[in-house]
Simulated assay, not measured.
Amino acid sequence: MSKILGIDYGKKMTGLSITDSKKKFAFGLDVVHTNKLMNFLKSFKIENSIEKIVIGLPKNLNNEEFSIEKYIKKFIFKFRLQYPRIRIDRLDERFTSKIAFHAMIESGIKKKKRRKKEILHKISAIIILQSYLKKN
């Protein structure tokens, strides 16, 4: 049964999350170096297991896009060339990093570990995907 993949795209690291087979819950999948993201997706056999991906849309409070959006658009272009059958949806990701950071504090993650961006990207990817599932 196919699933939905959530992506919190970053310049250096990208957080990934995935749904259960019923598409009710989002779970952390992995954090990969962004320059190795396409290779990861290929080895993950995305064509066989993913029907859709949800990528965060970074905007500020003035509804303007952050500079990272140009890199995300390049990734989406490459992705669509390689996987034209997989649908791509975007979700406004305002405040996901702050929510993820507070989630780390509330879950008792030590201060030293909270500094690692990998954890923040993974939790943000979960929040993006779970928000998408709740919305739809």
Rank of each mutant, 00 (worst) to 15 (best):
K3W: 01
G6S: 04
I7Y: 02
Y9H: 11
Y9L: 14
Y9Q: 01
G10Q: 01
K12S: 14
M13R: 15
L16P: 01
L16E: 00
S17H: 05
S21Y: 13
S21V: 15
K22V: 11
K24L: 12
F25H: 13
L29H: 08
L29I: 06
H33W: 10
K36T: 11
L37P: 03
M38C: 06
F40L: 07
L41V: 07
L41E: 04
K45P: 02
K45G: 08
I46C: 02
S49C: 11
S49G: 08
I50A: 07
E51G: 03
K52H: 09
I53C: 06
V54L: 12
G56I: 07
P58H: 04
N62T: 07
N63V: 00
E69R: 04
I72N: 03
K73Q: 14
F75A: 06
I76S: 00
F77V: 09
K78F: 08
F79Y: 08
Y83V: 10
R85G: 03
D89L: 08
D92Q: 08
E93Y: 04
E93R: 05
F95L: 12
T96D: 05
S97T: 11
I99Q: 12
A103M: 10
M104R: 08
M104N: 01
I105P: 03
E106K: 09
G108M: 10
K110P: 13
K112T: 14
K113N: 15
R114S: 09
K116E: 05
K117N: 12
E118S: 09
I119L: 10
K122A: 02
I123T: 15
I123F: 05
S124A: 13
S124T: 07
I126W: 01
I128H: 02
L129R: 03
S131W: 02
L133K: 03
